[in-house]
Amino acid sequence: MPVRRGHVAPQNTFLDTIIRKFEGQSRKFIIANARVENCAVIYCNDGFCELCGYSRAEVMQRPCTCDFLHGPRTQRRAAAQIAQALLGAEERKVEIAFYRKDGSCFLCLVDVVPVKNEDGAVIMFILNFEVVMEKDMVGSPAHDTNHRGPPTSWLAPGRAKTFRLKLPALLALTARESSVRSGGAGGAGAPGAVVVDVDLTPAAPSSESLALDEVTAMDNHVAGLGPAEERRALVGPGSPPRSAPGQLPSPRAHSLNPDASGSSCSLARTRSRESCASVRRASSADDIEAMRAGVLPPPPRHASTGAMHPLRSGLLNSTSDSDLVRYRTISKIPQITLNFVDLKGDPFLASPTSDREIIAPKIKERTHNVTEKVTQVLSLGADVLPEYKLQAPRIHRWTILHYSPFKAVWDWLILLLVIYTAVFTPYSAAFLLKETEEGPPATECGYACQPLAVVDLIVDIMFIVDILINFRTTYVNANEEVVSHPGRIAVHYFKGWFLIDMVAAIPFDLLI
């Protein structure tokens, strides 16, 4: 008679799926529990143990900040960024110097990925580790590398530091407007667009060049630039800015003055950032001319202004700041037409079709709590990747769950009947059967004279019903998954307890 339990259901295979997918890609990662103190490590794979030199037993239950890997060259700011990422709910990448158990130093890129439950609360953290440099290539500990984003994938490793954006290309926007319009339909740009040429040739750093990471940081200074100062900065030398009595002219307006920039070969870094931020506020060169004239017309309804409409929906549905990093990277690809469009465009503009998908598509409701890094690593669709929660398995109709209350009560009843059979069957065979043979035949009273025979008949009927119930009862397979398919249940029961239950259900007393 089957006594099969499996009270692990309803099970959740999400954690096993993450481990299996990460292991298949030869990654070095740990999984931490966000619900406990210090976000203790609950799993670390073999790749991480080989990377740091510690065994799994030495890593388990330690804080996922990996303070046991810190050393003299470990930056405090990087460690603080990892700790801050564990307090938030967004994906974050941090470069930090770690030390192995043998004392060797290596520069590592740590990717902190939160995993949320159905309520939107962070319950786990996945920390992925990628070695960037070994100890002989690690720089000085005073050099802070965590304020910069990861290198873009479309640049060669040897040319990542030679990417320079020439400031004269930004200063000569109005001069290039006529050349853009003359391109017409034969050019790649839309009317009114501004073409910015980027020099990728390796050259020595000069005062006129600005690194790509500095251009990325310009967006942080746009908020500090007032509207009046932006307007004066875009007017140009024809209309000098008016300053109040006793007030000095704005240095932001002076930063885009061609006369002032041409007199000296070098520009201050602050002026460069502010000038680029001011130019980015204009949607095209037409807006710059309109600002000089004193009238700013409404933005025209053409394809170039609607190019950012799908980007707005993608940004609203993005799951991490990696989408913004990807957008900034692609927006700086050289030799393309940049349409400086305000994100607050007309909502009635139709979304044009684009061959290049900048932001990841909208994630469906079932995966809105899973970050983009987890979705990318697992390579699963929205119909396959579940949320991290207890999910009731989908069972067929008329199927009994093996952990249901009805099955528990039924098993206790069958257990009592088995005990009765084990006690009274030998007793009936030894004593009652002998008395029946010696006594007179009682054929007239039937079952009324033999109450134990009636009980034995009921017990046999219950055993037959138990066999039928076992054909529709779920079970737990070797992978700790609840199986509810009727065919698989029948095959599993035939290979197991079916023969024993059938022999126990045969009414031998009635056959004798």
Rank of each mutant, 00 (worst) to 15 (best):
R5V: 09
R5M: 08
G6P: 06
H7M: 11
P10C: 10
D16M: 07
D16Y: 10
T17M: 07
I19L: 09
R20I: 01
A34P: 15
R35F: 15
R35Y: 12
R35W: 08
V36K: 15
N38D: 06
V41L: 04
C44R: 01
G47F: 03
F48L: 01
E50I: 05
L51I: 07
G53T: 01
G53D: 01
Y54R: 01
Y54N: 01
Y54G: 01
R56D: 01
R56P: 09
E58D: 05
E58F: 06
E58V: 04
Q61H: 09
C66M: 15
L69Y: 01
H70C: 14
G71L: 01
Q75M: 05
Q75Y: 04
R77K: 07
R77W: 13
A78F: 01
A78R: 11
A80E: 10
Q84F: 08
Q84C: 07
A85C: 04
A85D: 01
L87N: 13
G88P: 01
E90C: 08
E95S: 09
R100T: 05
R100S: 04
G103P: 01
G103V: 01
G103F: 06
C108Y: 01
L109N: 15
V110G: 01
P114S: 01
K116G: 07
A121Y: 10
V122S: 11
M124L: 05
V132E: 07
M133F: 10
M137H: 15
P141W: 06
P141M: 14
P141F: 06
G149A: 05
G149L: 11
G149V: 14
P151C: 11
W154D: 15
L155H: 11
A156Y: 06
P157M: 11
P157F: 15
T162C: 12
R164M: 06
L165F: 14
L165D: 10
L167C: 15
L171I: 05
A172M: 01
T174C: 05
R176P: 15
E177A: 08
E177D: 08
S179V: 06
S179D: 11
R181L: 08
G183L: 09
G183E: 05
G183H: 10
G187N: 12
A190F: 03
G192D: 15
A193K: 05
L200T: 15
T201Y: 03
T201G: 14
S207Q: 15
E208G: 05
E208A: 10
S209L: 14
V215F: 06
A217K: 14
D219A: 05
V222W: 09
L225I: 03
P227G: 07
P227T: 06
A228M: 06
G236N: 03
S243G: 13
G246W: 05
Q247T: 12
H254I: 13
L256V: 14
P258L: 12
D259C: 11
S263V: 08
S264L: 14
L267M: 07
R269H: 12
C276V: 09
C276Q: 14
S278V: 11
S278A: 15
V279Y: 13
V279T: 07
R281F: 10
R281H: 11
D286K: 05
D286N: 05
D286L: 09
D286S: 09
M291D: 11
A293Y: 04
H302Q: 07
H302R: 09
T305A: 14
A307F: 13
P310C: 05
P310Q: 07
S313E: 07
G314M: 09
L315S: 15
N317L: 08
S320R: 08
S322L: 07
L324N: 14
R326E: 09
R328C: 07
T329L: 08
I330N: 14
P334N: 08
I336Y: 14
L338V: 09
L338C: 15
L338P: 15
D346K: 07
R356K: 15
R356Y: 08
I359P: 14
A360G: 04
K364P: 04
K364N: 09
E365R: 07
E365Q: 13
T367Y: 13
H368M: 10
N369P: 07
N369R: 08
N369D: 07
N369W: 11
V370I: 12
T371P: 04
E372V: 04
